[in-house]
């Protein structure tokens, strides 16, 4: 593993990106849709509150954006570290 320090930087960048994405993932589902729902209950959406919308629509849309963002960003990080194919 001659490229080890190189790979370490690559792996650290990946872990950082995953951490950011999973914080948003948890915030959209466990946060806004469930545990933090009372905090945002003042925001009305179509006859109910924002938390309900997150539980039935918003969280899924956030998941979608996250996966595509991760794929796009990670493919760029691959190139920057010369480990793409």
């Amino acid at each position: 593993m001659a490229e080890k320090p190189h790979n370490n930087a690559y792996w650290a960048a990946n872990i950082r990106l995953i951490t950011v994405c999973l914080v948003i993932w948890a915030l959209a589902s466990y946060g806004f849709a469930i545990l933090l729902r009372p905090l945002i209950s003042g925001i009305a959406v179509g006859g109910t509150d924002l938390g309900f919308w997150f539980a039935q629509q918003g969280s899924i849309l956030v998941f979608l954006v996250l996966i595509f963002f991760y794929a796009w960003r990670m493919n760029k990080i691959d190139k920057e570290h010369g480990v793409d194919e």
Binding site: C21, L22, W25, S29, A33, A55, Q56, S59, I60, F63, L66, I67
Partner: peptide
């Protein structure tokens, strides 16, 4: 069910 069966893909 909605969040669980989609959030797993993340």
């Amino acid at each position: 069910f909605l969040m669980g069966w989609t959030g797993g893909y993340v």
